[in-house]
Structure formats: structure tokens, C-alpha cells
Design a binder for these strands. Structure first.
Length: 419
RNA sequence: GUGGGCGUCGUCAAGCGGUUAAGACCCUGGGUUGUGGCUCCAGUAUACGUGAGUUCGAAUCUCACCGCCCACCCCA
């Protein structure tokens, strides 16, 4: 047997309607806020991610699915933003006027060890808003993510926000933090020692108790924001208030992708095991320029669909039952089968979902089949019905049956003849 | 890359050194030749992850490998 590669998962028919529902909620909401869908390729130049995400990040250093083809290094997209930015620049979409507002639904690939809420292929939907430097955009982006969650009935996810400043204030903070930690450098855990130079901010949310203790009283990024960044953060908070989005400030939120500036946020849930983030995002004012575009600010988020599903399952969300068809037509005998096909085609032309048994089974089996698949109506055509020009239409829920003229089948189905 | 847990029919799940390896669900057929869900009966299945070892004898004990899950790390 050839089995599925590790870290991959089939989305089976019994689950797909749930995904369709969730994706539809997102799509609809994004468009409600004026965002348009953009679809970019699965495969991009490796360099796009190396430069965009940052070549010191874990994602780029050890998690990318990269391969060589015709002397080019290509990579399966590990996240959604870089591709959208590339498309924005390459197609000169900035010439169409700003802001540019896009949403996407895409698979992403990261070569990681699997656990709850984490797989090597995962799906993400997200939005990007390019061109706005003010916090109105950040607040709107966060509001949309919040809207998706609440529309899906999720009320126990917490929003954490932070500002990680601009390159200027961050450099200063970084120094202050390193000065604070340096005396105890050798007491930090091994991973944190290696973080000290590379990314000291990560030490702040290390889980080892020793590091936690050493980090107590460390300087906080928020205290090192320059005036512009500080004002922006204050403005963001009041705009979120205006939108009615509850949040808590968490100085520990540090996004793992290098391109973030100022606003950083996460929606976290306690239903996800140790992978608590269902949605993450923030502002990236230098990314577009860094990738060769005009100096254009941006802000966006990505939401993990698998993780969203885990939350929905855990909170007992009731999806609409998956209904296969509206009607099953049973033709008994050769002539009746032909008639069944004609009727079925006719109804399908009117948008009704109709099934006909293709296994040549007995009537009883066909009724079982309809029952198993939750088909609400069954129409039987036998010799009697053929002679009279009717079908025996059965309402499966009520266990009631009536003869209906063949010409009237469509009307009968929607006129509530069993009422 | 580093830890921990677990692998018995399609699914759930007994069994813990000697059994024809239970049971339930699912599926198929039947209980008046054209009617489902409930009930009754019957039927189908190459189920002990793989390979060695211990033993008269292994699903049951040992080891290795593989796979799955969870945690560290990182993130959606």
C-alpha cells in the first residue's frame, strides 16, 4: 500500500462541507469589508522567502520545502504574505490606487515535526491591506479576524496585542534587553543562550522556569517605543475600543517572522494544546520596499483553518448536516429507469440535486441508501405509476407518501405537499 | 533534532503465556414477490504494525525497526 506522506492529511467528504462553510464565512466577511481575492502560486523562488521572512528565522532555516529545478531554487510557500507582496509588486498593483486590499485561502508547507494543531501541510486564510500607514488599517484587519471568530460562535479566544516598534526603537530596546540579561547569560537555558545574539526578544517567552525567573523585571518593549510608535499603539487601542473588540496587551507577543513592525497580535485559544495561536498578524511597513517595491506600508493576518476546526470541534459547534441530495428516484423496470433518468435530468436542470441508484439494487436497498445519505425525498416509479403518469413521492422524515403527477414533481417538492 | 505514550477486523474494543482471537458498530441479505429509520435473524472480513529472540507453546515476555499521538522548539 502506498500511504500518504507524513504530515499530510486527506480532507474526506464527511468533513469537506465544514471547510466549505468556514471558508464561505471568511470569504463573505472579507468582501463585506471590501477585500478582493488574490491567488498566487504554491511555488515561489526560494529567495522571496529568504529575503521576505528573514533568513535567520526557523521557518527559512529549517522548515522550507525547497527543491532545485532547471538551476533555480524553488520553495513551496510556507506562509501567505510573501507571495501576495510579490504579486503586488510584480503586477504593479500599486498603480491601481491605494489602499490595496486582498484576501486569500491557501495551503502552506513547513517541514516540521507534527503534533496537535501542527502539520506539514496546513491551510490558512488571511488578508493583507497595503498602503495605509495609520492604525485605522490595523484596527480594521484585527476587526475582520475577530468578526470571523465571533461569526463562527467562538467566544473564548483571546486577542493579545503588542507593539514591537520600528527598526529604530527596536534596536535600542534590544540593546537594553541584552544589557539586562548579560550578567546572567550563562544561567539561561541553551536555546536562550543562542537566542541572546540572534533574537533576544524571544527569551522573554521561554517556558523554562529558570529563564522565566531571570527575565523578571526585564525592560519591556513598550517602554522603549519612540514617540511615533507609542502614539500609534495608543491609537490602535482606542480604535479597537471603538470597534468593540476586546483585547489585552501582552508585551510577550513577538512574531516569528522578521518583517513585522509596530503592531503585532495573536488570537489564542486554550483548546489547541500547546499550539495556542489560531490567528497571527501584524504590520510590516518595510516588507514591500525590501522586496523591491515602492515604499508602501502593509498590515495583515493569517488564520490557521485546521486550528480553527479544532476549536470548533472542541466547543461543539453544530455544522449543518451534510445533505447529499434532495431526491432519490427509483425506477423499477427498464422503462421506468428511462423515465427516472428523464425526470432526474429535468430536475437537475432546475437546480435540484437528484440521485439515481447506479448499482441496480432492490427497492428496499435503495430506501436504505436514501436514509443513510439523509436524502429527504424518494420518488418511486413502477408499472402502476408509469401507466398513471405519476410517481409515488415519499417524505422520508414524515414517513408519508403521495402520488404526484410526473409533470408536477418540481412543484411538489417545493410546495410542501405534505403540509 | 530531543523526550514521553500507544499500535488487535473498515471503526470502537475484550483478551495480559495454551481461546476456533470475544463483543459492538458499520456494511450486505432476509422477516409475504414494489418502501428506509426501530426490532429480530443470518452473512461477509487475509485483525493481533514488521522482523528477530525467549519458550514445548507468544496477540500476550525481550530487543530492534516502522507508524501514529503528545510535549520541547517554532508557529497558523
Amino acid at each position: 500500500m502506498i500511504s500518504i506522506p507524513k504530515g499530510m492529511k486527506d480532507l474526506l467528504p464527511s468533513e469537506s462541507h465544514k471547510w466549505q462553510y468556514v471558508e464561505d464565512v471568511f470569504r463573505t466577511l472579507a468582501e463585506t469589508y471590501g477585500y478582493k481575492e488574490i491567488r498566487t502560486p504554491m511555488v515561489e523562488s526560494t529567495e522571496l522567502f529568504a529575503r521576505g521572512i528573514g533568513d535567520t528565522t526557523d521557518v527559512v532555516q529549517k522548515e522550507m520545502y525547497s527543491f532545485e529545478k532547471a538551476d533555480r531554487s524553488l520553495t513551496l510557500k510556507p506562509e501567505g504574505t510573501a507571495g501576495v507582496v510579490r504579486a503586488f509588486i510584480e503586477n504593479k498593483l500599486y498603480a491601481e490606487g491605494l489602499p490595496a486590499k486582498y484576501y486569500y485561502i491557501t495551503p502552506c508547507y513547513r517541514y516540521e515535526k507534527m503534533q496537535k494543531g501542527r502539520s506539514r501541510e496546513f491551510h490558512q486564510f488571511g488578508i493583507e491591506c497595503f498602503g495605509a500607514s495609520g492604525m485605522m488599517a490595523d484596527a480594521e484587519v484585527i476587526r475582520i479576524a475577530y468578526d470571523v471568530l465571533t461569526t463562527l460562535g467562538i467566544d473564548d479566544v483571546k486577542l493579545k496585542i503588542n507593539s514591537i516598534g520600528c527598526p529604530n526603537c527596536r534596536a535600542e530596546y534590544r540593546k537594553a534587553l541584552q544589557d539586562f540579561l548579560r550578567p546572567n547569560l550563562d544561567k539561561l537555558c541553551d536555546t536562550c543562550k543562542s537566542r541572546f545574539d540572534r533574537n533576544p526578544m524571544r527569551i522573554l517567552d521561554c517556558k523554562s522556569p529558570e529563564c522565566q525567573a531571570l527575565v523578571k523585571g526585564a525592560p519591556v518593549m513598550l517602554d522603549y517605543l519612540d514617540e511615533d510608535c507609542r502614539n500609534a499603539f495608543e491609537e490602535l487601542k482606542s480604535l479597537l475600543d471603538a470597534y468593540g473588540v476586546p483585547y489585552e496587551v501582552d508585551p510577550g507577543i513577538v512574531r516569528g517572522l522578521d518583517y513585522y513592525t509596530k503592531t503585532a497580535f495573536e488570537f489564542v485559544s486554550d483548546k489547541l494544546g500547546s499550539q495556542s495561536t489560531v490567528c497571527g498578524g501584524g504590520r510590516y511597513d518595510k516588507l514591500i520596499e525590501q522586496l523591491g517595491g515602492p515604499d508602501t506600508p502593509g498590515v495583515g493576518f493569517g488564520m490557521g483553518i485546521e486550528r480553527l476546526m479544532l476549536i470548533l470541534e472542541a466547543s461543539g459547534f453544530k455544522f449543518d448536516p451534510d445533505k447529499t441530495s434532495d431526491l432519490l428516484i427509483c425506477g423499477l423496470g427498464e422503462k421506468a429507469k428511462i423515465k427516472a433518468i428523464e425526470l432526474a435530468e429535468d430536475l437537475r436542470g432546475s437546480g435540484v440535486s437528484v440521485m439515481i441508484d447506479v448499482m441496480d439494487r432492490g427497492l428496499k436497498a435503495q430506501f436504505k441508501y436514501a436514509d443513510r445519505l439523509n436524502v429527504p425525498y424518494v420518488a418511486v416509479i413502477g408499472d402502476d405509476e408509469l401507466a398513471k403518469g405519476v410517481v409515488s413521492l415519499r417524505d422520508m422524515k414524515r414517513s408519508e407518501q403521495k402520488e404526484v403527477p410526473m409533470d408536477n414533481l418540481f412543484l411538489a417538492l417545493f410546495a410542501g405537499i405534505f403540509d
